[in-house]
Amino acid sequence: MSDAAQSLLCCNGLSVVADGRHLLNDVNLTLQAGQFVALVGKNGAGKTTLLRAALGLAKPAAGRALLSGYDANTLPGRQRAGLVGWLPQNAPVPEPVAALDLVVAGRFRFNESFAASRVAAQDALAQAGAQEFENAAMTRLSGGEQQRVALAALIAQESPLLLLDEPANHLDPAQQIALYRLIGDLWRQGRAILCVTHDLNLLRFARLPNAAQAPLRVVGLQSGRVSFEVDFDAPELAPSLDRLFGVRLREVSVEGGRLLVPEDTR
């Protein structure tokens, strides 16, 4: 089979147009099992649109988004849910749904009894370190706790590709670090992860210290086009980001990696 069939995600010349404007323009991107891609870009660069296209929520004007070789737009819902899971950005749950019930919803694609779904959901909550919130209403959990439960729902869904849209947004530093550690665990279990983020410095918490590192790439989007795709550890990362965001970033070595710090050029 071709490359496309082996990739969990394969965007081929993907373009999405809305109201005459190109949200995505000829985007090519592939993700294999065990790979982590961080998607960066200015607001409005098309990051979320790319995730939506991979979920079959945005219809391509040209090109295709393939999930394990199947077109994301024509896959039946349950089958698609078996190939890709999604952590939406700022998706508040307005009703006081119990955390367990939200995770059980991740089992929708399985044809199983409620009791079986419940067991799987409890297991997923435990993996996400959120078992203590099982009976808590989502509306009463903090932002970090809510994200943990949402990740548990993704674990329960058992799809090999996870699309995460700014998962650590609005969280306090401790919660951000804990969340990226959890994402790193899911990554090392063999899932492919496509993660939209503005804070690349957090990515090092997804890695294990002093271990052989799995491939971690950074893809930059600019006005709907891929402007660069570089390895996270490559020296080209900082200058690529400079051009993308129009700020000067300085590399600062710290124990177990390096940080990118914006310079004050006033």
Partner: peptide, 8 residues
């Protein structure tokens, strides 16, 4: 949209 991603 989350429901959509879960297969609904």
């Amino acid at each position: 949209q989350r429901a959509h991603s879960q297969g609904v």
